[in-house]
Design a protein around this nucleic acid. Structure first.
Lengths: 180, 180
DNA sequence: TAAACCATGTAACCCGTTACATGATTAT
DNA sequence: ATAATCATGTAACGGGTTACATGGTTTA
């Protein structure tokens, strides 16, 4: 076994809510799911066929306009079982992030290196953007409280991500070297 | 171009400090570098030869015992240039984490689902372990203040990681659903 | 009618993991 | 002597990215 196929689990999770086409899933990965998971259609379409081949999901087609066919996928009982099993499986090990900022900083030995200030500035900039984005997403999705109850987990992870960004930025700003 | 070869940069960064064998690098990835970057020897050795082929680094051998040869690598001027260029290059985009906990939570719509409490418990457990580990690492490496000045970046990212874990755990515990 | 979007597909390539493999050297 | 560690190598495979490719449908 090499890496484990997590893509199939998230696809199963999405299909557990409603039937979707490959294109729908691609759009989700570009949109709301994309905040914490990304995948390209070149991976999604083959994966869906593979899963259908295993009997985890079933396919059916709908015609749009005069000749365009789109393929919907529906979760099947074995798929539901697999999803449930995965959801209850213990969380895997935490893996190192391979983050640019961390890697570069690690390689700087001299506290007076001007690169440190530059790296902090860049890191603060990109996380500030991320924080603003997350807050805007929250507004868009959960401004009304019904929605917050309908997709509880989604609301929770957005809050979580927002909070992490906020705390991290606070730390970064507190430890940012002064420009001279 | 597909993914960009970051491994070569970290190898260059390590070789900028001192000459190392493939085995040394492997050991670093299992040890202090491994806290934020991992790589197997099956990737390291070929990469080193590839880099030597490009002229980024040069190789020389030393004999151990009677017949065992080990190959040391030394950074070459083109390698130094490439490393400097990379260090000054702006940080890349933040990529979604594909984290288990986040993914699973996202898929839970019902706030009363008992899985939420289980996931929080597991997430708290694994991050508590991580936090303890980071604090222990700090003690090991930077208990004396000279070392802290010798490897400033390393000390900084350990502090940073420790702090993130701490803040995150605080948030998790505050939002953890009560068991009933 | 042209641009934007819907919808699906394949191929090449790289990165990273796991596993298989071999032999020398040092420590117990 | 035997085990642990040093030291290096290759092969197979899976997952993910980028690019190439095609054609239908809706909207301005």
């Amino acid at each position: 076994m090499s890496q484990k196929n997590k893509l199939q689990y998230i696809i199963l999770g999405l299909l557990a809510r409603q039937d979707l086409t490959g294109y729908d899933i691609k759009k989700l990965f570009e949109g709301e799911v994309g905040d914490f998971w990304r995948s390209n259609h070149s991976q999604v379409y083959p994966e869906l066929r593979k899963m259908a081949g295993k009997g985890l999901i079933t396919a059916y087609t709908a015609t749009v306009g005069t000749k365009m066919e789109k393929t919907y996928y529906k979760i099947a009982p074995p798929g539901k079982d697999l999803l449930t099993a995965w959801m209850h499986e213990p969380l895997g090990d935490l893996v190192p992030s391979r983050d640019d900022f961390t890697m570069k900083l690690y390689l700087i030995d001299d506290p007076r290196d001007p690169l440190i200030a530059q790296l902090f500035a860049e890191e603060i900039a990109r996380h500030t953007v991320k924080l603003a984005y997350l807050e805007q997403r929250w507004q868009e999705l959960f401004a009304s409280s019904e929605k917050q109850q309908q997709h509880y987990g989604h609301a929770l992870i957005l809050t979580l991500a927002r909070n992490r960004e906020h705390d991290y930025l606070t730390w970064l700003k507190a430890h940012q070297p002064k420009e001279k």
